[in-house]
Simulated scan of single mutants.
Amino acid sequence: MSPGSLSRRRLLLTGAAATLLPAAARAQEATDGPPPMIPAPELAPVRRNTSSFVRQDWRTHFDTLGVGAIVCDTTSRALHYWNADGSDYRIYPTSVPASEELTRRGYTKVVRKKVGPDWTPTASMMERFPELRYMPPGPDNPLGTHAMYLSWPAYLIHGTHDTRKIGRQSSDGCIGLYNFAIEELFAATPIGTQVRII
């Protein structure tokens, strides 16, 4: 070996050692103290009262999608929506009927839609709660901002201003959604959309 090549080798080894030394020193420093603080990821706020629910397949409930399909699952307290070609699938947390006696299951469809619905208590509601009275649209109206009327009389999918009801058995037979959710569903759902309540 010539003296020139030895000095090149020394130069390369010295350079490599100089490069690795700061990393080794940093690694040693990191083990001497507590680990560095890593900020926690920012999580979306948790919505109270919502139950867990699983994805549904529309074919389990309908032969075709028609103009659209909705499944209201009273067990998991969720509404599932599909548009006519199945490309839009949405799930919303809901309120459900307060008791088994108030729960109606089966097939129906959306026959009418209304923004700013008014509310009239049914005869059976008046029997149980004689103080109930007609309510015009507004913040105290139990139907919220939007309502979709089903072919069964007095059964609706509607919003609610009382968000504590979502995720609970709290209605007189209807399916309730947060107002922002019913507004979105209302816009996507055509008249004639088939509905199954399970």
Rank of each mutant, 00 (worst) to 15 (best):
P3D: 13
S5G: 01
L6P: 04
S7K: 15
R9V: 10
R10F: 12
T14S: 15
T14C: 13
A16L: 15
A17N: 05
A18R: 08
A18G: 15
P22Y: 07
P22L: 10
A23Q: 03
A24T: 08
A24F: 08
R26Y: 13
A27V: 04
T31P: 00
D32P: 00
G33L: 07
P34E: 14
P35W: 00
P36I: 06
I38D: 01
A40D: 14
A40H: 12
A40C: 06
P41E: 14
P41W: 08
E42K: 14
L43H: 09
A44L: 15
R47G: 03
R47Y: 13
N49I: 00
S51P: 05
S51F: 04
S52I: 08
F53Y: 14
W58V: 13
T60A: 14
T60H: 10
F62A: 10
T64P: 02
T64W: 00
L65A: 07
A69C: 10
I70S: 07
V71D: 01
C72L: 02
C72P: 00
W82T: 07
W82N: 12
A84G: 02
G86N: 09
G86F: 06
S87D: 12
Y89T: 12
Y89K: 09
Y92E: 01
Y92I: 04
Y92L: 02
P93I: 02
P93H: 06
P93N: 03
P97M: 11
A98F: 07
S99W: 14
E100P: 10
E100K: 14
E101L: 14
T103K: 02
R104N: 05
R104F: 08
R105Y: 03
G106D: 03
Y107M: 13
V110T: 07
V111M: 07
K113Q: 13
K113M: 06
D118Y: 15
T120M: 11
T120E: 13
T120R: 10
P121W: 05
S124I: 03
S124G: 06
M125A: 10
M126Q: 14
F129V: 14
P130F: 12
R133P: 05
R133V: 12
R133E: 15
Y134D: 00
Y134H: 15
M135Q: 15
M135A: 13
G138S: 04
G138F: 06
P139V: 06
P139R: 04
D140C: 08
D140Y: 02
N141M: 00
N141E: 10
L143G: 04
G144E: 03
G144D: 02
T145D: 09
Y149D: 05
Y149Q: 11
L150T: 13
L150Q: 10
W152Q: 05
A154K: 06
I157V: 08
I157Q: 02
H158T: 03
T160M: 07
H161S: 01
D162R: 10
T163Y: 01
T163Q: 06
K165T: 15
I166A: 07
S170W: 00
S170I: 03
D172F: 15
C174T: 05
C174M: 02
I175F: 11
I175E: 00
G176I: 00
L177H: 01
E184Y: 00
L185V: 04
L185Q: 06
F186H: 13
A187R: 11
A188Y: 02
A188V: 01
T189D: 04
I191F: 08
G192W: 07
T193G: 10
T193F: 00
Q194D: 12
R196M: 11
R196L: 10
I198D: 13
